[in-house]
Write a protein that binds this DNA or RNA. Structure first.
Lengths: 196, 196
DNA sequence: CCCACAATAGACTGATTAGTCGGTTTGTAA
DNA sequence: TTACAAACCGACTAATCAGTCTATTGTGGG
């Protein structure tokens, strides 16, 4: 692991544990086994460090969402079936990644709304998100989802998944239960899809 | 307004604007038109101040949820009608309060997950919440809602409302549109209620 | 009228910390 | 080899800030 990576890894853990302001850069460099000067060689400021970290973690999550396919919980056919399967794969991969990377998720949850994350960082993430966004767009255009602004729908679904992740993170064994998975996904899906 | 209240009001605005750590107590006392000594006379530490503030704001919100009744968007009868109307009133009052108290909501959103809020504060809020919680408990017991742990259901619904509030806060005029209200509430309700 | 105590004031301080600086080491291209 | 830059080091500093301290001003009850 390069010194740069050591610094990011140490920062992740310390930031979750103590928050941004209560984590001196000296503590980060110490935990990373690196000198202060080295830290500021790689990151001009402490804020640049947390932004780089946030971007990396978020992109790692996004990449995971896109590449893997996931087991289907519901095989009923119909014109919507394909879209539902794809979105379900996103949903499943998200929770799966969170359970395998709890610290990373805690970091994202804790700092996602914080003021330390610059707009430029958020824009970069927005771009990377465009792919998944298209799926939801499709659902609205096909008249399958509630006819509401895309932004709103995305926020509603994201918060549903976040809340589910938080829950399964505390109750890990529940994620083994296919029946619970099914119900939570049903709740998720029906928040999106018009009642027939 | 007492000096104590002046301090709380000033702190609210500064905390939203700059965050907790980037708001020196000196700035708070200055904005409140009060001396440093006075601030620390009313609140032993800066953390005690933010906890007091958080508690007050949250209780103000809860009180508002409980007391007012709200227009019904959906008058169909049935055994569930009463519960649905009550929950809809909570839902409506929440968004209504947020739109009338945007700064307070931003404060809650920003610091709700932060480490500055002590467990003792959270416990006090938990108690005050018991009333609303009972409504949801009823829905589960009657088999009306998804058969999932109450904690999970509460988190799912809370995040849905929070996301809605965030949206309407940016797009205030949309809240005037009864049709949108109806759709967002339909999405909210169907996240909870089993499909028939 | 007086006493005790709460509220107010603001100058001050001890501790903390982001970032700098001058220097050494390591890698690498010519 | 040599030369040059990038990576690395850690002591140091200038600035900031939470909370203290001592003094002053209301104020309610006896």
């Amino acid at each position: 692991m390069s010194k740069r990576e050591q610094i990011l890894a140490a920062a992740l853990n310390l930031f979750i544990e103590n928050g941004f302001e209560k984590t001196p850069t000296s503590a980060i460099s110490k935990a990373a086994g690196v000198a202060t000067g080295t830290l500021f060689h790689h990151f001009k400021t402490k804020e640049e460090l947390i932004n780089a970290l946030y971007l990396e973690v978020k992109l790692a999550l996004l990449e995971n969402l896109a590449t893997k396919t996931a087991p289907s919980l519901d095989l009923k056919g119909g014109t919507e079936a394909n879209l539902k399967i794809q979105i379900q794969a996103l949903w499943f991969n998200m929770i799966d990644w969170v359970l395998q990377n709890p610290q990373e998720f805690r970091f994202l949850a804790q700092f996602g709304e914080s003021a330390y994350i610059a707009n430029s960082t958020r824009e970069k993430i927005e771009e990377a998100f465009a792919g998944s966004k298209a799926l939801f767009c499709q659902g609205v255009e096909e008249g399958l989802f509630y006819d509401l602004p895309l932004d709103l729908l995305l926020n509603l679904t994201t918060s549903h998944i976040f809340a589910s992740c938080n829950y399964f993170l505390l109750q890990t064994e529940q994620w083994q239960d296919r029946d619970i998975q099914r119900k939570v996904f049903a709740s998720f899906w029906s928040l999106l899809a018009k009642v027939k």
